[in-house]
Design a protein around this nucleic acid. Structure first.
Lengths: 132, 132
DNA sequence: CATTTATTAGTAATAGTTATCGTTACTTGT
DNA sequence: ACAAGTAACGATAACTATTACTAATAAATG
């Protein structure tokens, strides 16, 4: 059973108080204002714990390494959360949404990335807790 | 002016001959069957060159570090390709597409990630070549 | 064929993240 | 309230993906 600690609460509070999608390092230096001797490892550990319990979400999916695609045209992907494999999804790219969002926000939008997440056919039998 | 080298051609050939979205390391070991003493740095350098010339695309966007989001509910993001900042996008999440793709593919789909890419308002003035 | 210069192999360095480990402090049961 | 059990801590080392550096090599050009 997880424990509620000062460090975890501070990290969660920092994360809930901003919309800037901070990096682990940014969170680290912000929390240090309150807990000056907190360790960077503690920040990473708690971010993972908070993510596992569903209290936060992580972007820049799938961690450490890049994957490359011989097809340079914009298309969509499916990623299996269990085995990590990536598949192409044959679904037409919807450009109208780009225009509508650009209109609403004032951003100039070149394209978008869409990735579906779930379990591939092979992995659907034996579901497990998500680990990373 | 870029040169066509045996290494670059081999890397491109490997990448065009698979749909498995390989990692740099996987590409490295596959190309080594043909050029045993190729360097891993060469693979990375050429992947970047091929990406810059638009011949391939890269996934797992934006490189090295993760960003975290205090809001665990599924929502969309916009990422500025110049300054790297990430903004929330207030757009309803479309669950029907998940169902349609699941039907077509046999995957079990939990959710999807959608990220728009372009230039934020501040960066729209001085556009530049994309560097990474 | 000689010159120019991008690219190479090899290796060292960097950066983000994770693992380890002895110590601390939250939680639970008595 | 106190003791026991154990999750979490801080500090640091290790790991992994990627990039930078350098002298040597090999495409391209005229």
């Amino acid at each position: 059973m997880p424990k509620r600690t000062r460090q975890k609460e501070a990290i969660l509070r920092v994360l809930k108080s901003t919309t800037s999608h901070p990096t682990a390092d940014w969170i680290y230096s912000d929390v240090r204002k309150e807990i000056p001797n907190i360790s960077l490892g503690t920040v990473y550990r708690n971010l993972k714990l908070l993510w596992q319990s569903g209290e936060i979400s992580e972007m820049d999916f799938s961690g450490t390494f890049s994957r490359f695609d011989g097809n340079p045209d914009n298309h969509y992907h499916f990623r299996c959360e269990r085995c990590g494999r990536v598949f192409d999804v044959d679904e037409p790219v919807n450009k109208e949404t780009d225009d509508r969002v650009a209109q609403k926000t004032g951003f100039k939008i070149f394209y978008h990335r869409l990735e579906f997440r779930g379990l591939c056919r092979e992995c659907q039998e034996s579901r497990e807790v998500r680990t990373k």
